[in-house]
Structures are given as C-alpha cells and as structure tokens.
Design a protein around this nucleic acid. Structure first.
Lengths: 129, 129
DNA sequence: TTCGAAATTCAATGATCGTTGAATTAAGCC
DNA sequence: GGCTTAATTCAACGATCATTGAATTTCGAA
C-alpha cells in the first residue's frame, strides 16, 4: 500500500495552516483527535457522524496536506493523529490555542461518547441505535 | 459618513477567523498592525506596497468582517487596528500566537521602515524612490 | 467651485472550495 | 474464489475566493 504523502513541516506556510482550519468539520475533527489523548487511536470511520465517507476523505486530505495531521495506514484502516511535536517546533504554541479556541465552539460536530472514554473496551454498538 | 459595519465579537465563529487568516496579504496586514504598537496609527494607504488599492479594500473588509480588525473613519482616511481586547476575551491567547506565527513567516509582505519607527516624524518620501 | 487624494464599489475573470453520488481500490475473511 | 468493510477517487455542481481595472464616492484644500 502506498503510504500517503505528508509535507515536510518546514514547507508548511502559516496561511496554509489557517486555510485548513477554516472549516467547522475540520475543526471538529481536530478537537476530536485532541480529545482522543492523541496517538493513533482515531480510525477514520470514527467520524462517520460528521459527514459522508467521501467528504470525510476530502477533509482528512486537507488537514494532512496542510501538515496538521498524520495518517498511518494499517490494513484497510487509517489512523489519524495530530503532528503535535512538529507543529510546536515550527509554530510554537499555535496548535494548542487553536484547539482550545475550537473546543469552545458549541457548533462544531462532536464525537459520540462511545469513542471517547477509556478506549480499551470492545467497540460494539451502544444501546441506542 | 456611514461608520462601517463591525460584527459583534460574540457572533464571530472560529472558522470565520481562520478563514480570514488564510491569506498571506492579510497576515502581512495583521503583523504590520501589530508592529505599529497598535491603536489607530495605521492608515489604509500605508499598505499600498502590499497590493492595489481595490484589492486592499477587499482584504481590509475580510479582516473587518471576521471581527479581527476595527476601522475608524476620519475624513477621507481610514485607520485600522486589531480588536485585541475583544479577541482575547472571546478567544483567549489565540490572536497573539497567530501574530507570533505570522511574524516568523519570511514570505509575508512587510511595511517599509518609513512607517514603523517612532511614528512622530513627517511622512514625506524617503531618499530612494 | 474645482481639483486631487483616499478609499470603495462594481463587473468580470479564473481558481479553488465544499458537497454529492457513483465507481474504484485494497485488504481481510468465509 | 467471492463477500464485506474501509476508505479513496472521480466527475460534476454551485458557491466563494483572489485579482484586475475602470468608475464612483467623499472629503479637504486651493
């Protein structure tokens, strides 16, 4: 499997980053990734409530191409995470205040509690559905 | 003169702010406003090196409508400033890390030194031009 | 009252954006 | 092999974007 393109963090311009943040769905994804205590627990399919699969693919690509997220391929699944260390090295403090700002926005799409809590339980459907 | 529309800061969404920041010219304007020690010393015409007058008008409007800048009308001139207190109240810490991030970008348009230093001298042309 | 400077408005352009839905790829499993 | 699931790709759409250049508004000063 071809392992997805990620830009070198030094090639990312501030305007590109802000462009990628200029959308409620993408801000929702970013907050959700942050809520997942980060690394590699977020499969793309966790976000089906946010938008259709093809639209999600589009938004994932935007975030990735702007240097904000990393995507790890494993089988037919993809795992997302925020490129925290690199972002903090290149734009110190920025990503945290962005996430903090987005987290306070009540109009962003949010992850259901079934994905949040610990992350260790079996991931079958929850009662109501 | 009709005194220009400014959105209530509470009506500004994070995604709107990031949208307004997703452009090098606007980031350049923002950094320049910040460099001008803020309040009300920045006339629109200070930015003629950044773009054509009509394009500048367009970018000024974007920043203003996103709640980032304030525009004070005085005669035929307009004075720009950053809505710092309001932004900090609504999105604590955000605008400072945005400006700090933008300030480090070497590719943004910048103000010539004739506008910067003290701001008290006569504003005639500088030697070379 | 005419002139000039400051800035905006307007119409037009090509580019990019967000969204849809259908088709496609790729891997794991019976 | 043939399903099923995960996710992407592609073509299309209308909307918004950045940019241009010409016309317009507004005010102050000669």
């Amino acid at each position: 499997m071809k392992p997805v393109f990620h830009p070198d963090i030094e090639d990312v311009a501030p305007a590109d980053v802000f462009g990628a943040l200029a959308d409620p769905i993408r801000l929702g994804i970013l907050v959700a990734l942050s809520d997942l205590n980060d690394v590699d627990r977020a499969r793309c399919s966790h976000f089906t409530a946010f938008a259709s699969p093809s639209l999600l693919s589009y938004h994932f690509a935007k975030l990735r191409e702007a240097g904000i997220t990393r995507m790890r391929v494993e089988g037919t699944s993809r795992y997302l995470s925020i490129r925290r260390e690199e972002l903090n090295q290149r734009f110190p403090g920025l990503i945290d205040s962005v996430i903090e700002t987005a987290r306070r926005d009540p109009n962003l799409p949010r992850l259901g509690p079934e994905w949040l809590s610990g992350g260790e339980q079996a991931q079958g459907q929850t009662s109501s559905r």
